[in-house]
């Protein structure tokens, strides 16, 4: 028989028993596990959302701080740039001033050195010229240079106008203003006597003049009265020589200063 009543009933009971068993051991545990996991995931998602929100707030805060920082930095950079520009200009000005001072000092020093060198050359030239002249005179004419100079000076005293002679005579006061005789080299007694005799003869001065040796007056003799002077010197000749030397070696100027300065620095 295809359909058995007892079997139908038994299967019905069996099925209901299986429903209960599966509900108890399958559906409920599985659904509970799924629900618990969903709750956990939801909690984690909510937590993640909160963290995300917190992170967003922190990011915004950070961005705000970053913007403030950037603004401050740009402001500081602008301020620093302006200060650096000013400082640069100041330092440049200082350097320029220092360079100008150095250049002026250097120019001045060079000028002084040049002048000293020129003086040295002139003096040395003078000495050499006088030495040559003295030897030449001595060799050719058996004459003394100072004697010749003295002779020229005495001749000038003789050639003075009477008015001038009288004036010079009044100016010479033995006590207050004695006549001074300045020479490059010390005059010997003969020469001194000659001068004194010329004074007595031409000007009527009996007092003994004061003889002085002035090394700068290399070759020349000058007679100084009170404010008046009679002299013979090679100064004019030396002036010509000096002019020639100056033309030969020009005085350093800012334009040609480097040309003069370079050899010294190298």
């Amino acid at each position: 028989m295809l359909l058995d009543g007892f079997t139908v009933g038994a299967q019905l009971v069996n099925f209901l028993l299986l429903v209960w068993l599966l509900k108890r051991f399958l559906y409920r545990p599985i659904l509970d596990a799924i629900a618990t996991r969903e709750q956990r995931i939801a909690a984690q998602l909510q937590d993640a959302e909160q963290q995300k929100a917190a992170a967003r707030l922190e990011r915004e805060d950070f961005q705000h701080k970053n913007e403030v920082f950037n603004e401050e930095r740009e402001s500081l950079v602008r301020k620093m740039t302006a200060e650096v520009k000013l400082e640069r200009l100041r330092l440049l000005e200082e350097a320029r001033t220092a360079a100008a001072t150095l250049r002026d000092g250097f120019t001045e020093k060079l000028k002084q050195e040049w002048q000293a060198w020129q003086r040295e050359i002139i003096q040395r030239t003078q000495r050499e010229v006088f030495a040559m002249t003295r030897r030449t005179l001595q060799d050719l004419a058996n004459a003394n240079l100072e004697d010749q100079i003295l002779a020229v000076l005495i001749r000038r005293l003789h050639e003075l106008d009477p008015a001038e002679k009288a004036k010079l005579s009044t100016l010479s006061d033995a006590a207050a203003h004695p006549v001074q005789v300045r020479s490059g080299t010390e005059l010997n007694p003969v020469q001194r006597d000659l001068i004194q005799a010329a004074f007595a003869e031409t000007l009527g001065i009996q007092s003994v003049p004061r003889f002085e040796t002035v090394p700068e007056n290399l070759c020349g003799i000058e007679i100084v009265f009170d404010g008046h002077k009679i002299s013979w010197s090679v100064a004019d000749y030396l002036a010509t020589l000096e002019q020639s030397l100056r033309e030969l070696v020009p005085e350093p100027s800012p334009s040609n200063m480097e040309q003069h300065a370079l050899p010294a620095t190298v």
């Binding site: 295809l2 359909l3 058995d4 139908v8 038994a10 299967q11 019905l12 099925f15 209901l16």
Partner: peptide, 10 residues
């Protein structure tokens, strides 16, 4: 058929 009938009755 008893089983299927039981299930159908359910």
């Amino acid at each position: 058929l008893s089983t299927t009938a039981a299930l159908a009755i359910c």
